[in-house]
């Protein structure tokens, strides 16, 4: 869909919403909006990362958020998301920490298991990632307990990957609507109801534009 079409459609929704005041139904708005979802490309060309770094990011992201009966990180475009957010939203010192951390992560795999990460069998990738992750998470927990803001914690590669995979995945259409549940225009508010009656009972998808 071109930007032009998107704009027109959005204008139509806004006009209709205004004309009808609050009367417009949520499903009607949803039906129009669902036509506009971005389509994550299957193949992607990294803009910031090298090809090899891109492959590493893709593999780690898919381990963090794999395909199950719902799409995984690769399928919803998380690797390309991470590439672009690193390029545009991270200052150069954090970019450098990510890249050097990625290299260290690979070098450590080589040292421990005798092979680069991407050449390890799946089971070893999982156990290696889990170990590196748990150590990093334990170290950061100390900072979190001291109320150091999330944005100032100088995360190592594995936790930067986790943060960005979570962010990219749950702000994707599939993550928000198939793994979580999402309603664009709830139309009303029920403050406390049995969880089974709150839509399908899953976590509601919301914006998450702040660091966590």
């Amino acid at each position: 869909m071109s930007d032009h079409d998107l704009m027109n459609r959005r204008e139509v929704i806004q006009r209709v919403a205004m004309l009808m005041g609050g009367a417009i139904s949520a499903p009607a708005v949803l039906a129009v909006l669902n036509g506009c979802s971005p389509k994550p490309g299957a193949g992607w060309q990294p803009l910031f990362l090298s090809k090899e770094e891109g492959a590493m990011v893709e593999a780690v992201a898919e381990l963090i958020m794999p395909r199950t009966d719902t799409p995984g990180a690769r399928e919803v475009g998380v690797p390309a998301f991470i590439d672009v957010i690193l390029k545009d939203a991270y200052p150069s010192d954090e970019q450098a920490r990510f890249i050097s951390g990625l290299k260290d992560f690979d070098a450590e795999a080589q040292r421990v298991h005798g092979k680069p990460f991407l050449e390890l069998p799946q089971a070893q990738r999982v156990s290696y990632l889990q170990r590196v992750h748990d150590e990093a998470a334990a170290a950061e927990k100390v900072e979190a307990d001291k109320d150091v803001p999330a944005g100032e914690r100088k995360r190592p590669f594995v936790l930067m990957m986790k943060e960005l995979t979570l962010l990219g995945f749950f702000t994707s259409q599939a993550g928000a609507t198939q793994v979580l549940q999402y309603v664009a225009v709830p139309g009303g508010f029920q403050a406390c109801i049995p969880i089974a009656e709150a839509g399908n009972g899953k976590q509601w998808a919301t914006e998450a534009s702040l660091r966590f």
């Binding site: 806004q14 006009r15 919403a17 545009d88 702000t171 534009s209």
Partner: peptide
Amino acid sequence: GDYPTATKDIWEFPYGGRATD
């Protein structure tokens, strides 16, 4: 009504909605 992001869904924003550098 001239609110350019008002009806956008979560996944329509780049960078998960975060500010760029």
